[in-house]
Design a protein around this nucleic acid. Structure first.
Length: 470
DNA sequence: TTTTGAGTTGTTCGA
DNA sequence: GTCGAACAACTCAAA
């Protein structure tokens, strides 16, 4: 064995907290002893929300245990990646580093700075693609530009992208003779000082094993009914893989390979599309993609933002969604649309406020997906959604949570109401309300806005924007 | 260059 | 209760 075989290689874990189908891990392992490191970054990829920090803590704990089982030791550090990594290279004598690429503008800038610092220090940087099925710059229109409409993107994707099968966990992993020092996980300070995470613990199992279990559950049942069930929030009909995908505890390739059903794969391509958009339009987390929306009059009552955040709007489906989010760090996608639309159109508050709240409370908080979703709802994003598409929270509630199962679970003070009245308690007859123990305005809020009036006001605002900007 | 067809997820109104 | 049309005008993507 040559001396070079004993020189360790650095492996920088970021949004790929898994061992299977991990190209950076495979490449590092093939070169000899591996020093895996995770850095809690000072700035970079944007501030981590509270729910995301909890998830990250659990996931790092699981990753560390898995690596230990294979004879490796995860090094935890905090600071600025260029500094931390050049220090670690000097400390270990590593000449090569591998990582899987990130795509958010700020994260990509950090990675670029780290690569430059390492190269200046004589360290070879090798990056790999694993967070997406296609690189954001791979697909282009006939003109060579980025796509802004999903359907043509989707067609192009199906024509040109053929995901390869997943990589196995590499065999024969070896640690270096000297293990670099690591912070204890607790010293990263990811967990809240007051433990509010009970609902999260109950709802989720972060980590690679938890991700595989969730995929298995989905493949053994829900995937076959996905097209019908995914819109019904009272049914466990979605994959619930979003947080696992966000943290890379499972790769999109593993999911794609496992689930061949077209309606589900289509959703995975949506994830690709949002990353494509964010890469090509890096300003969109803050500013509307459609420029004329910069003039939109967001003149709703800001005092209603907390009512929305805390699930006190008086619209049971909206409130159920916001409370599910607060308690479990996740909201069913159908309800995300209804609740987001309510903030933007009924309350006339800026989508950026909603995006910020979601970023802080979602365990799957993902810049590309979150940005796309909010801009789509606001009508300022990349699609042909007409401005007059305003969700009616009652129609949506009756259509998708007909029997009220979702509302009863998350708004228990309404649980005693019959199906017929649970969607709009303030319309129920007095006798029914009394029997259910519901006092509108006392045990459950009256609607903070009236639907028809709010709808008219939103339409008027869009009209104002279009007339005043021309 | 010009033309053409089409665009995730909806609601309301009136026949 | 059901059904089709209207809700505007624009932009995108490809031919």
């Amino acid at each position: 064995m040559t001396l070079a075989r004993h020189t360790p290689t650095l492996l920088w874990f970021r949004r790929d907290l898994r061992l299977a189908d991990n190209p950076a891990l495979c490449a590092a392992a093939a070169a000899g002893p591996v020093v895996p490191v995770f850095i809690l970054e000072d700035g970079g990829g944007g501030p981590l929300g509270g729910a995301a920090r909890w998830w990250l803590n659990q996931s790092l704990d699981r990753l560390s245990a898995s690596l230990t089982g294979l004879g490796l030791s995860l090094v935890l550090r905090r600071g600025s990646p260029p500094q931390v990594l050049t220090d670690l290279a000097a400390e270990t004598g590593a000449r090569v580093i591998h990582w899987n690429r990130r795509y958010e503008p700020e994260a990509a800038a950090v990675d670029q700075a780290a690569a430059e610092a390492l190269q200046s220090a004589g360290v070879t940087v090798q990056t790999h693609g694993s967070a997406l099925l296609a690189e954001p710059w791979d697909l282009a229109t006939g003109q060579g530009g980025p796509y802004q409409v999903f359907t043509p993107y989707y067609k192009k994707f199906l024509d040109t992208v053929h995901p390869r099968s997943a990589l196995p966990v590499p065999k024969g992993l070896a640690a270096p003779g000297v293990i670099p020092g690591s912070l204890p996980l607790a010293d990263l300070g990811l967990l809240p000082s007051v433990d509010w995470a009970g609902g999260l613990r109950e709802a989720w199992t972060p980590g690679e094993a938890g991700a595989q279990a969730e995929l298995t559950r989905f493949l053994e049942g829900a995937v076959d009914r996905y097209d019908d069930d995914r819109d019904h929030p009272g049914v466990n009909g979605t994959s619930r893989l979003s947080p696992h995908l966000h943290w890379g505890e499972i790769s999109p390739r593993q999911v794609w390979t496992g689930a061949a059903a077209a309606p589900f794969r289509r959703q995975l391509v949506w994830r690709e599309f949002t990353h494509h958009l964010l890469h090509h339009f890096p300003h969109t987390p803050h500013a509307p993609l459609r420029e004329k929306f910069a003039a939109f009059p967001w003149d709703g009552d800001p005092d209603l933002l907390p009512a929305w955040q805390e699930g006190r709007t008086g619209y049971p489906l909206v409130d159920a969604g916001m409370r599910q989010l607060w308690q479990t760090g996740w909201m069913h996608n159908r309800v995300r649309m209804v609740a987001s639309s309510f903030l933007v159109k009924h309350l006339l508050l800026p989508w950026q406020d909603g995006a910020r709240w979601f970023s802080d409370t979602l365990v799957d908080a993902d810049l590309a997906n979150n940005t796309f979703g909010w801009q789509w709802v606001a009508g300022s994003g990349a699609d042909g959604a007409p401005y007059f598409r305003i969700f009616n929270p009652l129609t949506q509630s009756r259509r998708f949570d007909t029997a009220g199962a979702y509302i009863r679970r998350w708004v228990p003070e309404l649980a005693g109401l019959p199906d017929k009245w649970i969607h709009a308690p303030w319309t129920a007859p007095t006798g029914i309300l009394e029997k259910a123990g519901v006092k509108p305005g006392r045990t459950y809020p009256l609607p903070v806005v009236e639907h028809a009036a709010a709808r008219q006001r939103a339409l008027e605002s869009y009209r104002r924007m279009t007339t005043e900007s021309t």
